[in-house]
């Protein structure tokens, strides 16, 4: 006799099937509903970005474009080199910043996790202190622009976020949870500190590294404030800041319309920028997501 898997189950547990299936169906519906709540806004945004401005004004947003138009993307595309340059800058900043930040943060966090490190407390305090107190905007600006002379360089977009105290503490907590025995036995096997760190500690810490990498890359990808402060050279504008200024400038233009500039498709462009801004980072999210939950809870237990 040939049975489908569900029939087979039904045969094995005759009293359970109906209730189990109803429960399962209910669960599926609930999950589907939550999924829809998450996905629908995205669909609406994409649909709006592909609608004509007039149809948005006339009928508002809808799940499918009422009047299909790529005017918004064409508007964003009218400076293709700028857009490409900005994508390039953002990608470079995100990759460099995330890798560099990960390396430096874990190099800082690891000694803080080692109980045999003499300056553990003062150094921890030094890191922790900056979470609560900082010099404020203007002194930071002075340091970056007048002391380090980083204005209008790509480093002004990377260095300020290279070490985030919260990430350091997250890493430290995870490192501290690694069994001391592993470290001791490695030392007995003749591992030096660097070899121990790169060959033993880091490979064991992939969950927390993935978590921090995700946070850090989102941090870099989404940032436009550093660009606002430090970048005047348009060739160095990161994507998010470019998109922010495009939207703000459309608003300013529409407020003060004159004969030189025709009214820009404000609504649909806003949505199109959102689509562009989500860009590749959304894939990073799904790629790192499986580590994410584990890493975060691990960090939180002892936090």
């Amino acid at each position: 006799m040939h049975l489908t898997p569900s029939e087979r189950t039904a045969e094995l547990t005759p009293s359970q099937p109906r209730r189990a299936q109803v429960g399962k169906l209910f669960l599926l519906l609930a999950v589907a509903a939550i999924g829809a709540i998450c996905v629908l806004p995205l669909v609406i945004v994409i649909s709006a970005s592909l609608s004509s401005e007039r149809s948005l004004v006339e009928w508002g947003y809808s799940l499918l474009p009422r009047e299909f138009s790529i005017a918004a993307y064409a508007y964003l595309w009218h400076q293709p080199d700028q857009l490409a340059a900005s994508y390039g800058i953002t990608t470079f900043v995100t990759v460099t910043g995330t890798l560099g930040g990960l390396l430096l943060s874990s190099l800082l966090a690891y000694p803080l996790a080692r109980r045999d490190f003499r300056w553990r407390r003062p150094l921890s305090f030094y890191v922790f202190f900056t979470m609560l107190f900082n010099g404020g905007l203007v002194p930071t600006y002075i340091v970056v622009s007048q002391v380090l002379h980083l204005k209008d360089t790509v480093w002004a977009l990377i260095l300020p976020y290279l070490i985030v105290p919260w990430f350091v503490l997250l890493l430290r907590t995870f490192f501290a949870m690694l069994p001391v025995e592993i470290i001791e036995s490695a030392q007995m096997d003749g591992f030096g500190e660097y070899r121990l760190f790169f060959r033993i500690v880091l490979p064991l810490s992939t969950p927390v590294l993935a978590t921090v990498a995700l946070f850090a890359s989102l941090n870099y990808w989404n940032d436009w404030f550093l660009a606002l402060l430090y970048i005047d050279d348009r060739r160095l504008l990161p994507l998010q800041y470019l998109l922010v200024t495009i939207i703000q400038n459309i608003e300013a233009i529409n407020m003060s319309a004159n004969t030189v500039t025709t009214a820009a498709p404000a609504e649909s462009v806003r949505m199109a920028t959102a689509v562009l801004a989500i860009g590749p980072i959304v894939f990073v999210y799904s790629f790192l997501q499986k580590y994410f939950v584990q890493g975060l809870t691990v960090g939180a237990i002892k936090g």
Binding site: L228, L229, T245, Q248, N249, E251, A252
Partner: peptide, 8 residues
Amino acid sequence: DWGSYDQK
């Protein structure tokens, strides 16, 4: 840019 001028 318009949105940045004041703050900058």
